[in-house]
Amino acid sequence: MPQITYREAIRHALAEELARDPNVVVMGEEVAQFNGAYKVTDGLLATFGPTRIVDTPISEAGFIGLGVGASMLGIRPVMELMFWSFYSVAFDQILNNAANVRYMSGGQINCPIVIRGPANGGTNVGATHSHTPENVLANHPGVKVVVPATAYDAKGLLKSAIRDNDPVFFLENTILYGDKGEVPEAEYVIPLGKADVKRAGTDLTIVTYGRCVIHSLKAAEVLEKDHGISVEVVDLRTIRPLDFDTVLASVKKTNRVLIVEEQKPFASVGTQLAYMIQREAFDDLDGPIHRLTTIDAPAIYSPPVETEQLPNPGRVIKAVLAAMA
């Protein structure tokens, strides 16, 4: 199977869906002539032309709102946010209009929009550019939220997202863009709302998603080798809809849980997971649910310190050892 990058996998998904459905339009800042701020859309303008690949001004409320409106009339816009951090200036369009229009119209309207872009810290760009809003987004019924960790998942999930009739928010990661993984040449899709056990284990379950999957897999290797601890890593892949059955099955097997997430702790995705695990698997737990998050402060700039503010393999190992103690 060919090895391609996470960035290429997303690009291939876009290209395949653009070719499949003439209603798909890719739109965002620098997506066309500049070939993408992070080169995700590199070459799409040359292949599909300026009607399908559209550069926007720096105007997120305007162009995201435009995409929402166009989607109500049957266009399938795939909007790129250069950083998901910029969602704050389009909040009303994303979370009032896209999220609510179906409900407020009594089900008369659907909004098949995808908004995608990177949402991560760890690149020393300070607090304004390092937001991870998946918890904020997923707090809004009516939307779907996807956070892929690998090239294979990114491609299959993005294709499902574009075909979905509900608004889907797709959160990528600039640090993962260059990571390579096996991706089949034949077409495939991965349904939203299906978790993936990335590593099987027996002693403790790590529930995680996004780049923290990669940290957790690295930590699991060390824990196995140096400490004889067998860690199972459950990658949620999609935050909403949530494949909680896979989480439950793993917890019932290992009886110990660590949630790892690149989120600030207060009211994070992990907060919801912890509530659900204690509610539905209380008797299966041999100890309290543990959680590893970003250290609770705005994203620090200082490069070596930011690494320590975020989850990383070393912090995951410590957290697992604490949970096993």
């Binding site: 339009v25 009607t51 409320a61 305007g62 162009f63 995201i64 709102g65 435009l66 995409g67 929402v68 409106g69 166009a70 989607s71 109500m72 009339l73 049957g74 266009i75 009303d92 369009q93 009032n96 209009n97």
Partner: peptide, 17 residues
């Protein structure tokens, strides 16, 4: 004002189609 980008999007869809 929140509906104004949406209306612009309706116009975009008309033109696209």
């Amino acid at each position: 004002g929140g509906q104004v980008p949406l209306g612009t999007g309706l116009a975009y869809a008309l033109k696209y189609q």
